[in-house]
């Protein structure tokens, strides 16, 4: 009887542990897939450096209210940002907000809108890939 109980306990722990860890694994793998996908489309290696530059640039061409990503996200991706209408934005850095860039629908939506707001155009796969590489490294 005792061994049966132990077996059940071990099995339950294993199931619990694996489900939690698999959640994390899935999150990491989806983000990796999304980034890899951009790399494939870009046809060139991705660079965290270029991603940092894109995050900080004041390129012009977008809407005057949003000259840079940092307008709302703040100067550092490690910190909480704030929308122009006053809502807080979780840090962009993956180390601070692990669930960042794990949902392709959200990634697409925000790149589409925010690239238009800041740059006045859609971002290229290279830019998107660089950006996510930078955020993942932080």
């Amino acid at each position: 009887m005792k061994t049966l109980k132990n077996t059940i306990a071990i099995a339950a722990t294993a199931v619990l542990f694996s489900s939690v860890s698999s959640g994390i694994v899935v999150a990491i793998s989806t983000r990796d897939t999304i980034i890899k996908d951009f790399a494939v489309k870009a046809g060139a290696p991705l660079s965290a450096e270029r991603g940092k530059a894109l995050f900080e640039t004041k390129a012009g061409g977008g809407k005057p209210e949003t000259p840079s990503c940092t307008t709302c996200h703040g100067a550092s991706p490690m910190n909480t940002g704030k929308t122009r209408a006053g809502k807080l934005i979780e840090p962009m850095a993956v180390s601070k907000t692990p669930e960042r860039f794990t949902e392709i629908k959200k990634v697409k939506k925000w790149f589409r809108r925010n690239c238009k707001s800041v740059l006045g155009r859609e971002c290229t796969p290279q830019e998107k890939g660089d950006f996510l590489t930078f955020m993942s490294s932080k």
């Binding site: 809407k63 209210e65 949003t66 939506k109 589409r112 809108r113 925010n114 238009k116 707001s117």
Partner: peptide, 11 residues
């Protein structure tokens, strides 16, 4: 929504 108070908020 593309021009939503100075931002692109399209859905």
């Amino acid at each position: 929504l593309e021009n939503h108070f100075g931002e692109d908020a399209s859905l």
